[in-house]
């Protein structure tokens, strides 16, 4: 547990390197919700295969790393109502706000985008309120 921040930093550098490569080599912003959402709502156009290739990479590398990693567990809830509500909110919200933790957070704030800072402040505060509300007050998560 004490080493978690080092792994966080190492992982963060990897995430940022992926974003840097996607920007400088492909000319694209690495926003997960935008990459996925464009495939879902048909706005991807001729970037469809580029997006799919990106997502295959995202899903595949953890498979490769699993045998050499210390712990692999999402600890995801088994409450179906919570999963459905959360999934709908994440899908709708990120596409309405046009970005999530990677697009507005990592890519937006690092270019000093006002929208990136505003969105990140809103979703972190709301997420904190959500956890306090649903965990400590209502006890559903």
């Amino acid at each position: 547990m004490e080493m978690d921040w080092i792994w966080g930093l190492v992982g963060g550098l990897l995430i940022g390197s992926g974003g840097a490569a996607y920007l400088l080599v492909n000319g694209r912003i690495m926003g997960a919700s935008g990459i996925i959402g464009g495939l879902i709502d048909g706005s991807a156009g001729n970037t469809k295969w580029e997006r799919l290739a990106f997502l295959v990479g995202v899903a595949l590398l953890p498979v490769v790393l699993t045998p050499i990693y210390r712990e692999v567990n999402t600890h995801i809830t088994d409450n179906i109502a919570v999963l459905v509500a959360a999934g709908l909110l994440v899908g709708l919200g990120t596409r309405i706000a046009n970005g999530c933790t990677s697009g507005h957070g990592v890519c937006g704030m690092s270019r000093l985008s006002l929208r990136g800072f505003a969105a990140t402040a809103v979703y972190i505060v709301t997420g904190g309120v959500g956890v306090v509300l649903f965990r400590h007050l209502l006890g559903v998560i």
């Binding site: 997960a32 996925i36 999963l83 909110l89 994440v90 309405i96 706000a97 046009n98 933790t101």
Partner: peptide, 20 residues
């Protein structure tokens, strides 16, 4: 931007997962 991020934040807190 604001309404979408409010919705996203709620969902993110509820499940602990974002799209990536």
């Amino acid at each position: 931007l604001v309404l979408g991020s409010v919705m996203f934040g709620m969902g993110w807190g509820l499940a602990g997962l974002c799209p990536g």
